[in-house]
């Protein structure tokens, strides 16, 4: 681990993102607004048609706040796009150049991935501030400056966890010709089971107890609940430790994939 190199790689990626044209940034903002509109109408309709005052323990303002938070934090955690960098390196053969450098390949890749955090985070914070200005903070939700600060490390760990989860599907590229579908698959699964589509407390009890034992919960549900001040300090620490543990487990699981795949890497072309 060399912090100097890490920061250098990260800053290159960050500068690249900042240098994108305005229309790119405008469309990402539009995307976020559209996503929020879809959430808003969905929950509005749910509460109206069911006639209930709470759903899965959430009030309408609560669930809307949750939706805003997962749309804002989700982009940071996913690092913007689909995770395809590693698999692309493998089948386009650009892995070769990283193998030549005297540094670990995954170190490079994570540094590049982390380079996207800052621009996404800034954008999310700006969007969040705008939403607060327009709508204010709902009184039903105990969101505070402290809870938002507490959410920051959970989001960064979530970002690492998402990267780690994406490593194994991408390493399959050593054997398969195209693993795009696996990355998409990961996205579907993490969205539904991680709370990116709806709060996990809407699932039946039995499903919730299974989900608590899975890593996905730390991607969207946990950071959002931390940000909303719904998590005690002890739970906060425990959650971060557990998600780091999951990072470790997925890293260990990826090792044999890397070892075996790298053995038969051809560098594309003879």
């Amino acid at each position: 681990m060399r912090p100097g190199l890490f920061i250098h790689l990260m800053s290159i990626e960050t500068r690249k993102l900042f240098s994108y044209r305005v229309d790119f940034w405008v469309t990402t903002v539009v995307n976020m607004v559209v996503t929020l509109i879809v959430f808003w109408y969905l929950w509005e309709a749910m509460f109206q048609e069911s006639g209930a005052s709470t759903i899965g323990g959430w009030s309408l303002p609560g669930i809307l706040t949750y939706s805003v938070l997962i749309s804002l934090s989700g982009r940071v955690i996913r690092g913007g796009d689909l995770q395809m960098a590693i698999s692309t390196d493998i089948y386009e053969g650009s892995l070769s150049r990283f193998l030549l450098y005297p540094s670990r390949y995954f170190f490079f890749k994570y540094a590049q991935q982390a380079g996207a955090v800052l621009p996404e985070l800034l954008q999310s914070i700006a969007m969040g501030a705008l939403i607060v200005l327009v709508y204010g903070i709902p009184t039903e939700v105990p969101v505070t400056a402290t809870s938002l600060l507490m959410a920051l490390p959970t989001i960064l760990i979530g970002h690492l966890l998402f990267f780690m989860l994406s490593v194994i599907p991408q390493l399959v590229a050593f054997w398969a010709e195209n693993v795009w579908s696996l990355s998409v698959l990961l996205r579907f699964i993490t969205m539904l089971l991680g709370g990116g589509m709806l709060p996990l407390s809407l699932f039946p009890e039995w499903a919730q107890s299974i989900l608590a034992w899975m890593p996905f919960i730390y991607l969207y549900d946990f950071p959002a609940r931390v940000a909303m001040g719904l998590v005690t300090q002890a739970q906060w620490l425990e959650g971060m430790l557990l998600s780091l543990l999951w990072c470790g487990i997925t890293a260990l699981l990826a090792v044999p994939f890397w070892r075996r795949g790298e053995l038969q890497y051809t560098g594309v072309g003879i």
Partner: peptide, 27 residues
């Protein structure tokens, strides 16, 4: 992989609404 991916996609779509309808009769 594509078959697995799309099967999952179909399952996710149907599950999403199934979970929602745990809490409402109409949407």
């Amino acid at each position: 992989f594509r078959i697995v991916m799309d099967t999952t996609f179909y399952a996710v779509e149907l599950l999403f609404f199934t979970v929602l309808y745990q809490h409402t009769k109409l949407l």
